[in-house]
Amino acid sequence: MLDAPAIWKLGAPALPGPSAARERALRALPAPDDPTELMEIEQELRALYTSAWRDDVPDEDRIWAARYRETCTLWVNQHRRGALAQSAYEGYLQSSDGRFGGEPAGPWRSVSAFAKEPWCSFVDRVEDAPEGESEPETAAAAAWEYWDAHCREAPPWDSDPDQAHWLAALRAARRKAQDDDGPPEMGR
């Protein structure tokens, strides 16, 4: 990433090293009125962030660079996880004519953060499915992960009338994951 995510800009600690000091100095500058000057500052920040991804980061900048890379990776993974969860949710609703749990369900943006986490747990189980596991087995396990994260007992899979909808959610999440570039190489 050549632009720092918002979480970095808001909470970047006072890290050691010349690159960290230069970043703080650039961020402390008053916003220039001249668009050319602003663009020069932004380019210098991008050059700093680019250097954090290089293999030959100087020793005095290693802590700053590692923290920047970790922050970017976390940000990308969280957004990717949320996008896959949204895709699963929308796949479920598309299959169920917009109903969830027997009730009309709203769009993703109306789902609370608490209610989104079970969908993220669903997606985590889909992505972590063992090699060779069948689609229905993965969908069942992911649906149980959903219900566990939702603090409710999962309905029986074999008699669940929504089984087809969970399969649709699984397929939507997988399609979205295949369309994505994938997560960064450094862990979740």
Rank of each mutant, 00 (worst) to 15 (best):
R22A: 15
S95H: 14
P155S: 08
A52T: 15
G132T: 00
Q78T: 05
A173H: 09
A21W: 07
E37N: 03
D162E: 15
A173Y: 10
A85D: 08
V126P: 00
D148V: 01
P16E: 00
D158Y: 11
W157Q: 06
A85C: 06
D55P: 03
C72E: 09
K176T: 13
A66N: 06
G82L: 10
D148F: 07
Q43G: 14
S134T: 13
E37W: 06
K176I: 02
S87V: 14
P104W: 09
P58I: 02
A20Q: 02
D59R: 12
G17Q: 00
P161M: 01
C72M: 05
Q86W: 01
E153K: 09
H165D: 13
W75L: 03
A140M: 15
Q78G: 06
R152S: 15
L170S: 08
H165N: 15
T73R: 06
S87H: 14
P104V: 12
C151K: 15
L170T: 12
E70A: 06
A139T: 01
E131I: 07
A12S: 13
P18Q: 14
A164T: 07
Q94M: 10
V123F: 09
V126Y: 04
W53I: 02
A168D: 11
A20W: 02
V111K: 05
P161R: 00
H79Y: 08
A6M: 07
S159V: 14
A172Q: 03
D179M: 11
E153T: 14
P155C: 01
P35C: 09
N77M: 06
K176C: 13
G82D: 14
W157T: 08
S134V: 01
S112Y: 10
G102S: 08
C120V: 09
A83Q: 13
L15H: 12
D56L: 11
Y68I: 13
Y146D: 02
A85E: 08
R99Q: 12
Q86F: 00
F114M: 13
H79E: 15
D180L: 02
A21D: 14
Q43K: 12
P118N: 05
P32E: 05
M186C: 04
H79M: 13
R27L: 08
R81N: 09
D148G: 04
G187L: 10
L2E: 15
E127R: 13
P18V: 08
E70D: 12
R171I: 03
A66K: 10
A129S: 09
A141D: 04
G102I: 04
A142H: 01
A164K: 05
G17Y: 00
C151G: 06
W166N: 06
T50F: 11
E42W: 11
E127L: 15
R80C: 05
L170R: 03
R62C: 03
A149I: 01
Q178D: 14
A25D: 07
D97N: 11
D61R: 02
W119C: 04
A83E: 15
D59P: 04
A88K: 10
W166H: 03
A12Y: 07
A20I: 00
R54M: 02
G187Y: 05
W157I: 12
E23L: 13
S19D: 15
A177G: 04
G132P: 00
S87T: 13
N77D: 10
A149Q: 07
E137Q: 13
